[in-house]
Simulated assay, not measured.
Amino acid sequence: MDRRELAAFLRSRRERVTPADVGLPAGPRRRTPGLRREEAAQLAFISTEYYTRLEQARGPRPSPVVLAGLARALRLTDAERAHLHHLAGVPPGTPPGPSREVRQSILDLLRRLTQAAAIVTSATIEVIAWNDLAAALMEDFSALPRRDRNLVRRAFLGPPFGGRRLYGVSDVEHFARHSAARLRAAAARYPGDPEVAGLVRELREGSAEFARLWDSHEVAVGSVMRKTFQHPLVGPVTVNCDVLDITDRDQQVVIYTAEPGSPSEQALRLLSVIGTQRMDVPT
């Protein structure tokens, strides 16, 4: 355990995190850059005294549980999490589960894509971030409970959206095969995560189609680069699909764009105005 380097690293990471990053008020008398020690300790579920001793290079070796709490509280990347473990003399283990924290730069990117629909999915194909046009094209994810944002669950177990399976996409059968393969690969990467295991169990018990695909043991199926959404208001919207891998978070950014000058581009422009409001039902 390198106490001095650990202390300096914790202090530098704490000073980088703003109160707004973790939902805390800044307050009028804040002098400390970033979080206060007591705030970092509270977020990590440890005592302020213990955290202070760590930053003063006087603390005992943190346990894996404490290190996990510190990594979460200080919003460390996977590389920083591994570095924290090495400084503490505790080899980093396999991440406990798929990351659902999206980098701020990726969130900024989504907001800047005003003419494209874009989502971020986790390793289990849960939609964990989206822009306004994606919500208008697919559905208002902010109005859904978290479990219904998982596209694998939606593809195999529903509920249907407007009577259509998975937004009426033209490649739904291919997506089903692709998502089952991705989920199998994720289950191998996170063998100890109860949420991943529970999702697989739920899908196997609730869908004969998923059980058949799961038993085929595929772990890699190519993505479809073009698909058509059947939207209840603007009709068919054909889009190109580009996927960007965020390897350090095991996430993907999926960007949907229409051909310039096409009816689908006009449909996306209309959706950007309509947003998520429903005009096909009485108010």
Rank of each mutant, 00 (worst) to 15 (best):
A208N: 05
L268S: 06
L213C: 06
R204P: 00
V219K: 00
L233A: 13
L233I: 08
V239M: 03
V221Y: 13
M225T: 09
R201D: 14
C241M: 14
S207F: 11
T247E: 10
R201P: 00
L203V: 00
D250A: 15
S216C: 01
E259S: 14
L271E: 03
R226D: 11
V243A: 08
E218S: 05
G235W: 01
G206T: 05
R249V: 00
A267V: 02
P263F: 05
Q230K: 06
S207D: 09
T238P: 13
L203W: 02
R212K: 06
G261N: 12
S262R: 14
S216F: 00
V243S: 09
D245T: 12
V239H: 01
I255P: 09
P263S: 03
C241P: 08
L233E: 12
V239A: 03
E265L: 07
Q251G: 02
E218K: 03
P260R: 12
I246F: 06
V200T: 10
S207A: 10
S264K: 14
L213N: 02
G261P: 11
F229K: 10
L271R: 09
T257H: 05
L213E: 01
L213W: 01
Y256W: 15
Q266D: 13
V221F: 15
W214S: 03
H231E: 07
L233C: 04
V237M: 13
Q230M: 13
G222S: 09
E205K: 04
F210D: 05
P236R: 10
